[in-house]
């Protein structure tokens, strides 16, 4: 079972990101996804940075994948997708534009490039995954709302390498509108980079006072942390081969260690839940895995 580190979904400063990946070098993860998924305006890492960080992490034995933007609407954003493809790493496609670039028969540039279908590609079913496979996709990160049964069905019937989002605030929606700027009476065009004031996003609560969503620029995530810490064995049983942990501002290393120990069978459920809960402010959820509302949380039984 591989452990992977998803792309950083929040707007951290360049130095912070570089420091984070220095720590990642020592984390027991097999694969690291690097790159901006949310917003082209964020200044985090440039392509030179990504290449340098990626190569350094490769030297520690990790696989490197560059993640692409989820929503691509203009030439600037398309150029970021092309830039990701030009790097000497695997690519995680989060928008179908990637496939037009890699399959373009006139160009040999990206021939044989292995593509990971990211969580924002609609890999819901067998016919879709079989097609993606034809387009050079060996691994699929399943859409977050898929249940255990649906994931299992897709793996059994396609043989695809299945990666599942197992820990972190879970991405729920993308917009043209920047919700963080909106909170400051600004819009995306007049953005003043307020995202960087919220390194784990801006949590909003319901009128009843329950944390519900995390506003993160043009995206919305859950306020609760989605976790499948108790279902590592179960995921293995249904043929999942990689577990994705989504980076958080503090404590990612501890989360990774906990999942690693769980994979190795060194700790039990109680200890696992305790470890991932201790630094957690907003509570846990994992309903989608069980085929119910994502916001719900179920413990393992027995």
């Amino acid at each position: 079972m591989q452990l992977t580190l998803g792309p950083i979904l929040f707007d951290w400063k360049r130095e912070e990101i570089l420091r984070f990946y220095d720590e990642v070098a020592d984390m027991p993860v097999d694969r690291v996804y690097i790159g901006e998924v949310i917003c082209a305006k964020r200044k985090g890492l440039g392509f030179n940075d990504i290449e340098a960080v990626g190569k350094r992490l490769m030297d520690t034995g990790k696989e490197i994948v560059v993640s692409t933007l989820a929503v691509v609407t203009d030439e600037e954003e398309l150029s970021l997708v092309r830039g990701a493809l030009n790097l000497p790493f695997l690519v995680e496609a989060n928008d179908m534009s990637v496939f037009n670039m890699t399959l373009n028969k006139g160009s040999k540039t990206y021939a044989n490039k292995e593509i990971v279908a990211g969580p924002h590609i609609t890999s819901y079913n067998v016919p879709s995954i079989e097609l993606l496979n034809k387009y050079g996709v060996k691994r699929v990160v399943f859409p977050v709302e898929l249940s255990r049964d649906s994931i299992a069905y897709n793996i059994v019937n396609t043989g695809v390498e299945g990666e599942v989002f197992v820990h972190g605030k879970i991405p729920l929606a993308f917009s043209w509108r920047c919700y963080t700027s909106r909170a400051y009476d600004l819009n995306k065009s007049s953005c003043r980079y307020h995202c960087s004031d919220f390194p784990d996003g801006m949590v909003v609560k319901t009128l009843k006072g329950e944390p519900v969503f995390t506003v993160n620029g043009t995206s919305v995530l859950s306020a609760l942390t989605y976790t499948l810490i108790e279902f590592v064995d179960d995921l293995k049983k249904i043929g999942v081969t990689a577990l994705r942990i989504s980076p958080q501002y503090r404590g990612t290393s501890k989360i990774v260690d906990t999942f690693r120990k769980m994979v190795k069978g060194e700790i039990g459920h109680e200890e696992g839940v305790e470890a991932v809960t201790s630094d957690n402010e907003g509570g846990l959820c994992n309903g989608w895995y069980h085929g119910i509302a994502g916001k719900e949380y179920r413990r393992a039984t027995g």
């Binding site: 609609t122 977050v144 879970i170 729920l172 929606a173 085929g291 509302a293």
Partner: peptide
């Protein structure tokens, strides 16, 4: 739809029932 269609899980997250599925 203020969020891009086909990739919005807000309803699914709150209710378990989504436009996509």
């Amino acid at each position: 739809c203020i969020n891009i269609e086909g990739r919005c899980y807000l309803s699914s997250f709150i209710t378990g029932s989504s436009t996509n599925t």
